[in-house]
Write a protein that binds this DNA or RNA. Structure first.
Lengths: 187, 187, 187, 187
DNA sequence: CATGAATGAGGCTTCATTCAT
DNA sequence: AATGAATGAAGCCTCATTCAT
């Protein structure tokens, strides 16, 4: 129908727009949380509102896409921590990393609060995130970094709390992590 | 034209209406959080929307009033704990009490998350709440229930997290308190 | 809570607004059919869009209300024709009356086209309309004005056609009625 | 650069695309009427939306094209009926044929309703359709199948009604034709 | 003081059409 | 000539707040 070249070009542009939307939404959601207007996002992305809706047919879809993206980033880092198999890292390293991410992303804090306790099936990356936590705990338990009775659920709660602490600027979140890590240690 | 009686009668009616609104809002906010419609509140209170707005000129004002009320209740209980001067109670007792309250009041969870880290001046009762926490910590420190380096800010964060854990049903909040209390203990 | 008087006054005003909306919608729907914008209706009624939606929470609801109203008017007239029991009137008189109404109301033509063949339950007045047709046919059959084999369904189709003829200005609708009435006569 | 072959090839391709669009639109309009989305049509045709708009610069244009096509088909059949000069066929045969067509084509019903009474100049085929009706009536009048006073306009109305009856599934349209044909007969 | 009707700004989303490649 | 991404004007509806009685 048309040459591969022109095709690729168009598709590239379209993808660029998609990325622009994602990028803009990411920035806005990070700063203001998820109750930003769709038209704001479109404007910030430099595209028409119609384009935004072509890429993400629903506000929910846009939020989802970004949440999954960020979640996968966190998971990737966590995997690196796990693979490094550095005993001093592990759970603690993970929590500090999550803290860094959330500290720079209000929207993600909102998501994480919901995710950590949800029984319902989530997007892939968020499920992976939960899986990573579980894995980290298992290792930590073996190592004795945390008590034998500590469960993934315990850590999920701690993370949920962490997100809230950060989102509400309730204090020095590193200290929060210190305290809760101490709380999880074997007595 | 109006006898003292009728005067008093009217004032009483007005006050009753105010109470009805408060009561209704309390119930609705407790169950559904603060994003309940104002008209819903008025309906539940059995008063006109206009009356509601006369008593509380803004949605914010209504939320504030209830938050203050709830906060003062918590403070009162906390004072009792403090006065009783039961070493086994103190901070722990306070946290469990707060947990109970928040578990039954979604709106209050929302408020507490914001309150605990706010640097801005709050309503009286909420300031008192913060003061109580500070006091409890001081005592606990003296007693050795918590580490010497533990600050009121630390506990504020823990409470903020607690509120989030409860609001998002992220797990067993009593366990969350256990863990964090452990984390605050002297090593 | 308030005196009956003030109450009544308010309610009267509200009803006046409701009537204004109905009236405005009636006029606009009559002229342009049902695809008029809600804001247009509100403007024509001299009320805010919010008021319109308070009275009729949905575009559908507004159309329904007017359709029912008009249908009930038609039924009322039809009853008079039936009661008068004038042999020369009856079905013919009814059809001409319907024609007059539809000729002045595009929206109603749209409704009638749909109504006449619908198996689904309709609003009260529209059901009554169908009942009236059935009744008229029964009488006409007895009188011999129409053939023994003529059914209400036949007339419903004729009326549906009548509505289309009028809505599309396909010709002299009185002539259409003449022709179809002839077609229904006993041979 | 382009050989005659490639030229012709291209032209052929273009024509094929036009046909695909027409075919797809025909099917979709037949099933769902004219309020199908343009993008749906393009998708069904297997062409880009841009191609569709190149062939038919407006939704109206596409509808028109199909209407003309369908109309010409009807005219062709009607001519055959006319030519056959079968006295038992003629008008009746034509009406039943139109009924068949409309029963299988919602979009065409919509068109026919509008066409039959339009004073404005139409597309060629639709004008031809009107001409055929006129011709059929003239013949029928001569034969005495219909009354001397029956005009083409009368039949146009009947056909407009037929379209509405079919589109709204208001009943058995064959019966409708029976009745109206009876109505057109000389008394 | 109570009432509740009225207001209208604002948010989400759709879809016919244009345009750059 | 074909493609399909981009556009943005509308349209529907909600709800916090105001105001006339």
């Amino acid at each position: 129908m048309s040459t591969p070249q022109s095709r690729r070009k168009t598709r590239t542009d379209a993808e660029r727009n998609r990325d622009r939307v994602l990028q803009a939404a990411r920035v806005l959601f990070a700063e203001f949380g998820h109750d930003v207007q769709m038209s704001e996002v479109a404007r910030a992305a430099g595209v028409g509102i119609g384009t935004l809706y072509r890429k993400f047919p629903t506000r929910e879809a846009l939020i989802e896409a970004i949440a999954e993206h960020r979640a996968s980033e966190i998971v990737a880092t966590a995997r690196r921590l796990t693979d490094a198999d550095d005993p001093t890292q592990g759970l603690a390293g993970f929590l500090y990393h999550v803290g860094e991410v959330l500290a720079g992303d209000r929207g993600m804090s909102e998501v994480i609060e919901k995710v950590m306790g949800s029984a319902e099936p989530q997007g892939e990356a968020r499920e992976a995130l939960l899986a990573v936590v579980a894995e980290l705990i298992d290792r930590a338990r073996v190592r004795g970094t945390v008590g034998q009775d500590v469960t993934a659920g315990d850590v999920n709660m701690v993370i949920c709390g962490l997100a809230a602490v950060i989102r509400n600027a309730a204090g020095d979140w590193r200290r929060y992590i210190e305290v809760t890590l101490d709380g999880l240690r074997p007595r």
